[in-house]
Design a protein around this nucleic acid. Sequence first.
DNA 1: ATTTACTTGCAGTTATAACAGATAGAATCC
DNA 2: GGATTCTATCTGTTATAACTGCAAGTAAAT
Lengths: 223, 223
Amino acid sequence: MPATADNPDAMFQTAADHAYHVIREKILSGEFKPGQKLSRRGMAAETKVSVIPVIEALHRLENDGLVESQPRWGSRVLRLDDRQVRDFTCLREAVECQAVRMLAGRLDAVQENTLRTLAAEIDQKYMSAREDPKLWEVHYQFHLNLVVYTGCDSLVAALKRCHLFNLVQKATQRAGSKTKRLPPDWHLRIVDALVAGDPRRAHDIMEGHVRDSLDPQDQKAAR
Amino acid sequence: MPATADNPDAMFQTAADHAYHVIREKILSGEFKPGQKLSRRGMAAETKVSVIPVIEALHRLENDGLVESQPRWGSRVLRLDDRQVRDFTCLREAVECQAVRMLAGRLDAVQENTLRTLAAEIDQKYMSAREDPKLWEVHYQFHLNLVVYTGCDSLVAALKRCHLFNLVQKATQRAGSKTKRLPPDWHLRIVDALVAGDPRRAHDIMEGHVRDSLDPQDQKAAR
DNA sequence: ATTTACTTGCAGTTATAACAGATAGAATCC
DNA sequence: GGATTCTATCTGTTATAACTGCAAGTAAAT
């Protein structure tokens, strides 16, 4: 199904792209709930394409970490349990701590400036009373940039997986349970530690940061 | 193509499994060289299955990290360049350092015993004059167990990707260029540090270990 | 000789249809 | 009534064949 005038959603190149984006959007919007079975024919009907592009789309989603499959059984939306929360927290800690160790004392001027601007915006938004929907977007931008600056694609890919998991979590679970108080320089201190240049100190600060950013009920699950 | 008597290789359940294992083996054996184009019809002819299971197989290989694809272009065997070496070294350092930080002071008796046995075997094999082909197998077992003991599947998956990359490297590049001298307790000291229980010290030892295990020419590439 | 247009073949993409395994419900037998 | 078996249907799996875009090679025209 190439792009046609009567199907504006199909502006993507291939039918597989179309199915991929449709299914992904329905997962991230919460319409497809975690653990739900995604049958190939069902998805084909849902996305108005044939089975084969659906298979391709499901594979890409599995590669993204949004769906999990078993041979001879099918695919389902990624399940969210305590084990997964702990799992992705470990991975995020591994990736981000590695990133700050690599970057300590190596940021160039523009990188430092970018991070500092983002950190200031996050900390300010976080301290303000009302919820800013852009907060988590900027927050992700900050952490993503941090890892991108390492130049290590594997680390970036791993962090993106963690982020997708968080998106699924936010899409399905309780909204706005965050009453935890965090220091006003929650993110700026990370930038300061990076500029200071001591990898161990930067590591310690980031490690604490990642563990602090867990919701209290998840913190217990993470041990 | 289900399993048939005249095709013992097809003992796997599905045709996609068959194609997956055949292509994977040819990559790991060096028959398909890094960067080589893998056309779908070509692979179909090579594995005696149709195009669709080949697509499935290529996707799984891409998920493993052995193959990289571009839309509307096709798939190729993972390329090996200095950037990739540096990339996977970073990832491995991130994963293994995280693992020892998590495990420091938390190993149970059987885990400690298993690791200590493997470490002793590695160090002894490494010090012996002649090359033991099982050395790298045991070496991988040691590091894999270490990460498995964290109970974090994401870390395990990441380490497996690094290992696959190493296998491709070994399959294609120079063999036996390792004349570097390493301390005789190269691995036992890791176990000792884990048992001692200080996460920072375990981290430092593992960090040095990962960086030491690079070939000298790659060490320059890793900066 | 160079450039341009056409042809041809290859590779990715996808629809259709048929095959196979699993599951649930009904029917049958003890 | 309970257990077993049989069947209907759903779903994963795959072969075939056709469509599309791209690139290289060739022939013709300037």
